[in-house]
Nucleic acid binder design. Structure first.
Length: 828
RNA sequence: GGGCACGUGGCGGAAUCGGCAGACGCGCUGGAUUUAGGUUCCAGUGGGGCGACCCAUCCGAGUUCGAGUCUCGGCGUGCCCACCA
């Protein structure tokens, strides 16, 4: 290959990135009259360097943004930084680097790398959550929530990560371990701030039903996390003790099968029982001590069900039976009432427990046909028909549930109840690098919010990082102040906010990012919201995506923004990227960096490979060989089209050229097939650009074949294709496309051009291939005019020896005809 | 243990309103050009058979004129949830 025919991607790519930036062609204007489109990738944590896994995520979002722009939408495509968080603080503790310096340097580097990737972000909207101009609004929202009773402080058993030295929200504990560092989480009783997400459970659930642009599995995960369950709460009397035990059950139809009552060790009734049965105290407290010494992980996962009897008995309000009360390890204090009725015959957990402690098992439900399995080897947990249940014998489970609930209600002993698994969102953290909680504790006035005109409460600089305790609590200059109410001495709340607060509303701030008097202007924000396409990994299914929905509903309710209360109309979950089958990570030392990749192969080749190698929702395995094909592709396009750019400009794009012969039609058709694919993959929200790029390959294969023919330089199909090619290439290989466009003689960027509507005339085929089957097996393929009738097709088919050979000696029983596709002759 | 996906050449993947299985790319084989090539271009590339043909989308049944696609059963892989009463 001669030098001058090589595409110098390094020079071209850098130059074009500078030109796009200088001309501001991706800046979204509020006053643009075209239909808006908001495409957003989840904002990144500035961890240091980007690798090709990040590039997979951002390339998809960028292709979507670019193609929507070309299809006439007013696209907003912003980017920013989830800049608070522990890694910065850990760098401070371990290496003595200021968290802000560390974070800002990473942001600089990652912004450079995102630009290097040729992304079309509107950088005028950039934000970083560690900017005081941003986090002051975290504080402002906190105070608004506090005023509405949606932010509150209370002492509760909370998750404590011993490594990160802070509390965690329930959503941030996975398998009993810290989501960030993997340490086993401990339970501690601490006074903490919560956001009352539980007030929004029904709306969060109802919204999920409408979010048909979300993957079903994410919706299911959120439903499961919210964990709505409907049942009955009712009470047992305790024999000889002045107390009742409330229990919650979804299976009140099994109440006659209760053979014990199980309570959590922390349940208040236990103390009351000790007054009457003092000898039980030691046994129960020893048992409870064995539990608290265990980590949350061991407690919930590894332990078999155990317990100790309290010595007391409860009276079943319906059967009047007397059943023992046990303290157990499998009843959770924080869910329901902290106590359950034990029905071993019809609940797996109660069954295991009863087997272990030799408690009686009383079967009260049979299969729907009335058959009884005895003895039970496992709990029968399905609905069925009631037996041994007093006046309810013979009823079906569903009817019995209604009847018994009504009876308990009439007795004044119970009511139907709805319980949820989700707990309020614990938002305070005992760490430095986050938003200070804007609250003051005054000895006289109690908890007092910082007045709005004193916001932001700035994070102090020069704090000591010991890795122990809340760093802010050790800073007297920060902590001590006068109470805004009474003027007396008071102290600040030393905690900072969960960084998931930052990411709960950033997508609205992008829409009015420089507002100094409000988080954002309601009219400006409402004109852009909701996010039309949100893109990110599935790891945030019940973290960010649940918090953000809650936060947005609050903002809607308060009138800060108007419209539907779901912020993300569509959600696309990207598949992860592997390298030779392994996850890419610094610790494995197998990171494929952006800088090296771009320098070696070029941005467009990288982008094309990431889009082509697999559908975007699939896991993609990065291989060093695979990208070679895209490097070749880029160079092939250059060699084929660049020499013709002068001549090609003469062929207008607003109409099809005059075509003669099949080869020309086929070439132009391939172009329009690619245009149609790009359009369809975008409009159906499938984004399978792996198929669209394959169509581009076919187009280039046809083009290079056409160029071998004599007279190709004057062929209208060739020239038209060369002229149109930058348009169809632009979302995927934006630099190559723009460079070719400028060689065609255009001053304006190709990214400001309109996508060409696929033309039905160009897409039409001159001849169809009709498949002829005999008894379902392909025997011949006929070339025929589109629209050929069944009888004509049959007549043609019967001239094919491979067809007649199969029918010979048989009778044609039936013909199946699919126009322009297939003729199946059934013969026997 | 439960739920949800998924299972196609040596590899990534196409083809899902049931109608040509393997588009496109990587890799591989052969050829041309080249002093040379990690270059470019051309051709070939699921298996079997001399052949007309036969077999083939994890395995096994079924529905159908016709099944990668639908149904049932098994096996395997992935993800999520796992004492929430």
């Amino acid at each position: 290959m001669s030098e001058e025919r090589t595409y110098d991607f390094r020079t071209v790519e850098r130059a074009l990135q500078e030109r796009w930036e200088r001309d501001g062609i991706f800046v979204a204007r509020d006053d643009d009259p075209r239909e808006k489109y908001y495409v957003l990738e989840m904002l990144p944590y500035p961890s240091g360097d980007l690798h090709v896994g990040h590039a997979k995520n951002y390339t998809l979002g960028d292709a979507i943004a670019r193609i929507h722009r070309m299809r006439g939408k007013n696209v907003v495509h912003p980017m920013g930084w989830d800049a608070f968080g522990l890694p910065a603080e850990n760098a401070a503790i371990q290496r003595g680097i200021d968290p802000e310096t560390w974070t800002r340097e990473n942001i600089e580097n990652m912004r450079r790398q995102l630009r290097l990737m040729g992304t079309s972000y509107d950088w005028t909207r950039e934000l970083a959550s560690c900017d005081p101009e941003y986090y002051r609004w975290n504080q402002w929202f906190f105070i608004r929530m506090f005023e509405k009773g949606l932010a509150y402080k209370r002492e509760a058993p909370v998750n404590w990560c011993p490594v990160d030295q802070t509390v965690l929200a329930n959503e941030q504990v996975e398998d009993g371990k810290c989501w960030r560092c993997g340490a086993s989480v401990e339970r501690r009783n601490l006074a903490q701030w919560f956001y009352k997400i539980t007030d929004y459970v029904e709306r969060l659930l109802a919204g999920l039903d409408r979010l048909d642009g979300w993957p079903e599995r994410i919706r299911t995960m959120q439903r499961n996390w919210i964990g709505k369950s409907e049942g009955v709460t009712f009470s047992f009397d305790v024999e000889n003790v002045e107390a009742q035990i409330e229990v919650f059950t979804t299976r009140i139809d099994t109440v006659f099968g209760a053979t014990f009552v199980a309570v959590a060790p922390e349940h208040p009734v236990v103390e009351k029982i000790f007054e009457r049965f003092p000898k039980s105290r030691r046994r129960v407290e020893e048992f409870a001590a064995t539990l608290t010494s265990k980590s949350e992980l061991e407690r919930t996962q590894l332990m078999e069900k155990t317990g100790v009897p309290t010595g007391a008995y409860a009276i079943n309000p319906l059967s009047r039976e007397r059943v023992p009360i046990w303290v157990t390890n499998y009843v959770l204090a924080e869910y329901g009432t902290g106590a359950v009725m034990g029905v071993p015959a019809h609940d797996e957990r109660d069954f295991d427990f009863a087997k272990k402690h030799a408690l009686p098992i009383a079967q009260v439900i049979t299969t729907p046909d009335g058959s009884l399995r005895a003895p039970l080897h496992e709990a029968y947990v399905e609905d069925g028909k009631l037996i041994a249940s007093g006046e309810y014998i013979g009823m079906k489970s569903a009817a019995a549930r209604r009847a018994i609930a009504a009876r308990l209600e009439a007795m004044g002993r119970g009511k139907t109840t709805t319980n949820y698994r989700i707990r309020d969102w614990l938002v305070s953290r005992q760490r430095y690098w986050g938003t200070p909680i804007p609250m003051i504790v005054c000895p006289a006035d109690g908890i007092v919010p910082v007045p709005d005109d004193q916001l932001p409460v700035l994070l102090p600089k020069d704090v000591q990082f010991t890795g122990q305790g809340s760093p802010l609590a050790n800073d007297p200059a920060f902590m001590n102040l006068t109470c805004p109410k009474c003027g007396g001495a008071a102290r600040r709340d030393p905690d900072t906010m969960d960084t998931f607060v930052d990411s709960s509303w950033y997508y609205v701030r992008y829409l009015d990012p420089h507002n100094a008097v409000k988080p954002f202007d309601d009219a400006t924000a409402s004109a852009w919201m909701p996010v039309d396409q949100y893109i990110g990994g599935a790891e945030h299914a019940v973290l960010h995506l649940l918090y953000a929905r809650f936060f947005y509903m609050f903002m809607i309710d308060e009138g800060y923004v108007h419209g539907d209360d779901e912020p993300f109309t569509r959600l696309f979950n990207q598949g992860i990227l592997l390298y030779n089958g392994e996850k890419m990570s610094k610790s494995r030392g197998n990171v494929v960096g952006i800088d090296e990749t771009v320098d070696k192969y070029g941005v467009d080749a990288m982008r094309l490979f990431l889009l082509k190698a697999a559908p975007p929702e699939d896991t993609l395995d990065w291989t060093d060989e695979g990208i070679i094909g895209r490097v070749r592709f880029v160079q092939r396009i250059w060699r084929a089209t660049e020499p013709l750019t002068q001549a090609a400009r003469a062929l207008p794009l607003d109409r099809l050229p005059e075509l003669r012969g099949d080869a020309q039609r086929e070439l132009v058709r391939a172009l329009h097939v690619a245009l149609e694919s790009g359009k369809n993959e975008t409009e159906t929200h499938r984004f399978h650009y792996n198929v669209t790029t394959a169509k581009l390959d076919e187009l280039i294969n046809l083009l290079t074949a056409a160029l071998r023919e004599p007279g190709a330089q004057d062929d209208p199909a060739v020239l038209y294709t060369v002229h149109a090619l930058p348009i169809v290439l632009a979302p995927f290989a934006p630099h190559l496309a723009d460079e070719l466009w400028s060689r065609l003689g255009y001053d304006r960027s190709v990214h400001l051009e309109r996508w060409i509507e696929p033309d039905p005339v160009a897409l039409a085929v001159a001849e169809i291939t009709l498949v002829v089957q005999v008894n379902g097996k392909v025997r011949a393929r006929l070339q025929a005019a589109p629209g050929i009738g069944e009888d004509d097709a049959f007549a043609l088919a019967m001239r094919e020896p491979t067809v007649t050979a199969q029918i010979d000696g048989k009778q044609v029983r039936k013909r199946i005809f699919v126009p322009d596709k297939l003729l199946n002759i059934v013969a026997a």
